[in-house]
Design a protein around this nucleic acid. Structure first.
Lengths: 173, 173
DNA sequence: TAATTATGGTTGACGCGTCAATGAGATGAG
DNA sequence: CTCATCTCATTGACGCGTCAACCATAATTA
């Protein structure tokens, strides 16, 4: 390796400061706590876990409440194996259904059941309210703006190639 | 309930905006991705999981590398049950040891083994480097400052009573 | 001291997430 | 057509986290 490395982008040579490490730890701890609180409340209030909610959300936004298993996995950025396990559990509870795909005999089509759709509808409002209460109500508009900027920066750092694409994508969240 | 609720702190009446929700989701997704990347790398590089690391860190900072099980749990803010399960697994791997406590026959004293201490020492530097690479190198000093402010605000919102205490605590991280 | 309650810690059941392996069907090269 | 290869999806094993139940001991109260 050369003495100056290959990505010499200003900060690269410096050691990480204690303060930066502390902020990293605070970020991990605080987000973990928020996820724990909101996840537990979602489950208590509506009987769906955050993971369930994620799946139900993607399915209800899909055309006709149906998606190929792989499409669903891509949509919510899960490994297929994880999704398969989770769909198994959700199927047992009657929230979704899996049918053979007509155009590809290997495939599975996942769809919402009536129960699943009802569960999702019932979960949405209380969940949004909880996010507002524990997260959104705490921050000022300036803080939101700063956080948005920070998260975009981190995403661009993680996925440099997609920098532009993500920004455009966000318009139809 | 009264029309104006009881905590009328400016933002309370407004509905959460779509943008705020999107930022919440981005926060959850981005931190999850960072944890996944850094956790996997820690495990590959050093053979310890993030949870292992947390336990090892607390023990090595403790006086003589020994802690009562409850103290350890309080230190890292884990449920006792979780800690007990995890200590069982770490004990099987020879990273820690549990002895009966001399002053309280119910208690257990947890201590680092030589192997555990060695593992921890070997994990520290690569882990810090990875955090720097994937997180710290992405942000400007101004962004760090903003993030610090945001996280403190969120913590104060979650634990209003401890507002002052936390700030003081942070000095000896 | 005897009965009650609180505390320290463990266990079992179960849902969850990852990894590696698998099977079945699609696809492309020859 | 046939063989190699890729893709879709599932499975099993295992570590992890939560909840409720549990046991032993300590502290408290009567």
């Amino acid at each position: 390796m050369r003495d100056d490395g290959r990505v010499t982008s200003a900060a690269t040579r410096r050691r990480m400061s204690v303060g930066e490490l502390a902020i990293w730890r605070a970020l991990v701890d605080t987000t973990a706590e928020l996820r724990r609180i909101l996840g537990a409340q979602l489950l208590r209030d509506s009987g769906v876990s955050p993971a369930d909610y994620h799946v139900l959300l993607a399915l209800s936004e899909a055309n006709g409440g149906r998606l190929r298993s792989s499409e669903l996995a891509a949509e919510i950025d899960w490994e297929r194996s994880r999704l398969s396990h989770h769909l198994g559990r959700m199927e047992r509870r009657g929230l979704i259904r899996r049918d053979d795909c007509s155009t590809d005999s290997r495939g599975a089509e996942v769809s919402l059941t009536e129960d699943g759709a009802r569960m999702f509808r019932g979960a949405t409002a209380p969940h949004a309210l909880a996010i507002k209460k524990h997260f959104a109500d705490a921050l000022t508009p300036a803080q939101f703006e700063a956080l948005d900027d920070i998260l975009r920066t981190l995403q661009n750092h993680l996925h440099p190639e997609q920098a532009a694409a993500i920004t455009r994508e966000d318009l139809h969240v």
